[in-house]
Design a protein around this nucleic acid. Structure first.
Lengths: 240, 240
DNA sequence: TCATGAAGGCTGCCATAGCAGATGGCACAT
DNA sequence: ATGTGCCATCTGCTATGGCAGCCTTCATGA
């Protein structure tokens, strides 16, 4: 049970909120989510509200809330009066979640193109610049951080709670696959940079359709690089 | 507080599970959600865990869980130690949720095209037939019911919990607008029928791209008919 | 040997009680 | 009349305990 005592978590965006002021349920949720995506809690692991609460040193109530959220995210499945188990997500599950994320990121980009204010656009430009410098410096870790912030800014620009929460869960889901994609080939970093620039251009031009298409293609291609989706050179076949 | 005592709920799909065996939290969630989307709890209404629990005749714990889920759905917003309030969702919010739903429904259709089994395809054909007959009989209510089941079948065919839950929340969100769209003009029913037929054809052809495109267009157009999105005759402008 | 069933230990679920933080009003001083 | 500090009262949040199902187990009987 020492897994829950791990210190760091790889999602700097959410760290902005003070760790101490967060509710116990929220902390338990993030901790469990990180433990699952990092493999500390492999699929099939049985999770008991009581024992987990004891391991975390808190009551069973916040733990229960955290498990409920994880269930909504599809990370655990609980049979009533039976137990809660970490869900199985093999490659096909990962691919599913990735395609769903591509769709939602596209919708977020479209909405952001309509209502992003000047400050947000400036912040996006700053993150793009940071990504550029990190790319030239050959620092994939900094690129990854700027990448996360870039997307988080777009999510926030929509002002839609449902979208923000869903995308936060989905991005946490395949965070590991995303950094792996960035480190795959040396050509990957500048390509991601170019795509981000294209997305930002569409946002500045207030063009929802283009922003959505580019963002969607960006996510899908990063999934292919990460090995979660098969490469599809031909996407033009149609049904009569 | 008699609003929570209302009997019927307009989502026949979820009624398949026995009402008695559902947890109190689940029942409270659906009840509150229906009360909100039907306007019984207008935006800005303050909701107290305790008083609401007393009105429902249950403890505060299940009510709290229901409120957390509604918060994830973006229907309520709660300030810590301050209170919970029904969120404001004017036309622009409705439009947002509609576009998000279009994106997710598209993803669901794409996944369903890959892994829907023969039984599901047959069931979809049956619902299409039912929709056809209801259309010819001039029964918009039956068309609406078959419509909901058609989409629910596709959602279930994906086998993705996250997708299923998200779409259930989104569809509950603008259920009223959807029936209004179906009853808008007499040409609407056969058009929806044709679009469904086209989607099913793409599913049977195992063509994810076409299925996604058609489903997405179908949802977007129904949103336009419902007045939630402006009509966009030209969608081909691009950013250089 | 094998079916059976009762008991104990699990599980998630719910009710109750009490906590700290936030709010509004009121008395008081300026 | 206005600013100020205190207190009753509200809120969401958490801890504790007990409930009803589910599952395993082992003694009992045929």
């Amino acid at each position: 049970m020492a897994a829950f005592m791990s210190a760091a978590a790889p999602y700097p965006v959410e760290r902005l909120a003070e760790e101490d002021t967060l509710s116990l349920a929220e902390r338990a949720y993030r901790r469990l989510r990180d433990s699952i995506v990092q493999g500390a809690l492999p699929p099939g692991s049985r999770i008991s509200e009581r024992s987990l609460a004891a391991a975390l040193g808190i009551s069973a109530q916040p733990v229960r809330e955290a498990l409920r959220r994880l269930e909504q995210d599809g990370m655990v499945v609980t049979l009533p009066r039976r137990g809660t188990v970490v869900a199985e997500f093999g490659p096909e599950r990962q691919a599913e979640m990735g395609r769903i994320r591509a769709a939602l990121e596209g919708a977020a980009a479209a909405l952001a193109a309509e209502r992003a204010d000047a400050a947000t656009l400036a912040a996006l430009e700053a993150q793009l610049q940071a990504m550029q410098e990190a790319t030239e410096a050959g620092r994939p870790d900094l690129v990854s951080a700027a990448n996360e912030r870039f997307h988080a800014l777009i999510h926030g620009a929509t002002g839609n709670v449902f979208l923000i929460r869903s995308l936060a869960a989905l991005r946490a889901f395949d965070h590991v696959g995303r950094v792996r994609a960035l480190n795959s080939t040396p050509k990957e970093l500048p390509r991601a940079l170019r795509e981000h620039a294209g997305i930002l251009a569409a946002l500045q031009a207030r063009d929802p359709e283009t922003a959505e298409a580019r963002m969607r293609a960006h996510v899908l291609r990063s999934l292919e690089v990460g090995g979660l989706l098969p490469h599809r050179p031909d996407r033009r076949r149609r049904t009569p």
